[in-house]
Nucleic acid binder design. Sequence first.
DNA 1: CCGAACTATCGAAACGTTTCGATAGCCCAG
DNA 2: CTGGGCTATCGAAACGTTTCGATAGTTCGG
Lengths: 337, 337
Amino acid sequence: MANIHDVARAAGVSISTVSYALSGKRSIADSTKRRIEDAVRTLEYRPNAGARMLKGSRTHILALSAPMHAGTHAPAHMTFALAVATAARRFDYDVLLLTQDEATSGLTRVVHSSLVDGIVLLDVSRDDPRTALVRELGLPATVIGIPRDTAGLTCVDLDFDGAARLAVRRLVDLGHRKVGLIGQAPTVYDRGSNFPLRFRDAFLAEATQNGATVAFTPSAEDSAGVRGAFDGLIADLPSMTALVMHCNEPVQSMVLELLNQRGISVPGDLSVISACSSFSTDHLNPPLDVIPLPAELSCTRAIELTMAQLAGHVEPHVELIEPTYVDLGSTRSLTRS
Amino acid sequence: MANIHDVARAAGVSISTVSYALSGKRSIADSTKRRIEDAVRTLEYRPNAGARMLKGSRTHILALSAPMHAGTHAPAHMTFALAVATAARRFDYDVLLLTQDEATSGLTRVVHSSLVDGIVLLDVSRDDPRTALVRELGLPATVIGIPRDTAGLTCVDLDFDGAARLAVRRLVDLGHRKVGLIGQAPTVYDRGSNFPLRFRDAFLAEATQNGATVAFTPSAEDSAGVRGAFDGLIADLPSMTALVMHCNEPVQSMVLELLNQRGISVPGDLSVISACSSFSTDHLNPPLDVIPLPAELSCTRAIELTMAQLAGHVEPHVELIEPTYVDLGSTRSLTRS
DNA sequence: CCGAACTATCGAAACGTTTCGATAGCCCAG
DNA sequence: CTGGGCTATCGAAACGTTTCGATAGTTCGG
């Protein structure tokens, strides 16, 4: 493997000239620069990562802390991890994967050994021990999700409160006053995972404020659980005319299957909205109106914010991504038929 | 952050002594070693990763090449990535995540910049461009999956052929002669993904050899696709008494749901086996006999093999993991009632 | 009781960068 | 024609390890 000396020799210059030509930190004559670039290409030179880490104070690696809990939805998780890695590459950064217990303890390790320049936290719960750790470590870091105490943290997430309000308002505007809400698995709420709670609470508040009645139920991810959840809603709110689903894909398709079996037509008998879904709803039957969970956007922004922290000084703050409503025809108006 | 000089000063020894005490490469007096270990603990010393990479020829990082194709099942993929990361940690290795296009091009990049000591390839297809790359790069590498040409490669995977034979023999032993096989999504076979093809072909061959008739169908991952697939099997083989599913979890639960709807009891009317499934089948209704896809085992072994390559010299070879049969009561004998 | 063999430790070189300070050559104002 | 201020380049130090070779000190067989 060629090193900077080889390049310097090939181009007939000193190594510092090569370094400056490549980094652009000092002006180098065009002709010289060209010769150097040629040599780099011919020799397939790549700066040695270790040396770069050691001398420059940048490692060009970010830690991605991605624990998996019981309720973690693997596809969504995967989507986020992928989006983070892709976004990081746009800034010439690689991603070190820290999972399970390493998601917490590994952070200290990689930071103390100066292996990473920054941290991205995935799937934070309300009181996540990693937030304290991140504050303590003092490295550029961005949290995807909103923990209870955001002091000193930079956080990005979809505005789940806004998404909940958007869903409620849409339905209220269409004349619905009895609305069901199917949420995540019960364990998810118990664990204090933050976004399901944020969504649910904002949903209930907004509904109350708009004179709508809501029946809420979590739902396990099997057909019995789904049936139970749905029956529960019907029992609570027999005159329900609209349903919002803030849950994983399997549950949503099982619910649609159930509706189909029972001859409940969408949106004829029931208006349905898929809220904060990380998957595309247009292959569902029927396709559902959706307020998408923009994984790419969140992750891209998270990386941008981490880079900004690395570069200048960005004060810690919370950034909420504005929710959007995609109408695919699964809701209908009750006022004018 | 404390460095080795600080530790040396605190312990009253030279830095080389510290280094030897920690690496164990030369004998150090017990009393000295203790003092050094104390200093390490007090100062929270961690060797600087960059320096270690630069001087030692080990980076303690592995590249995990994990592309996502259209047909990739995210939960399974996640399980493997996780298992790799966990296994790597047991050898004091971290994992650099290379996804999408970077899964290929990133390999060259990280190897040329000496950022990684070895490579693990996930989800290789029959003619995966990454295999050529790995051969060319000449770094320790392990492939999870079996490409068409394994020359010069170290590969690990479940013995899918053996798994197929195991499933067939189990059913044949129980007296079944008409067997349905539901496979992955059609696109998976078109792409040349290796294990679905291996399983299917071995299954058909073994059945023929045992005088059993097989109807095979791929299946898309939605309820219409599942229904269509199942109806296709019935049409091909009306007297089918057993069904093997080599497909993802959602399809398997949809099939069970369908059987339930149609009043087909398991195993009363139909014996069912879940083949090479990365998930637990005991929460399915009913729980299914399964030949598990041992993600942890494969990944652990892959890491062991990579480490072996790093250490001494392991000749490239293919290692197949023996399949096991877990009986959860979803098959029954036709011969003695 | 001499030196061989071993043990515990140290000093210094090397790994491949980045970056600071120096300098050689040039242009142009005074 | 002197020298101040550029531009383009170079040399050398520094980053924090690992590891080779050297050296005191100790043990022990003959």
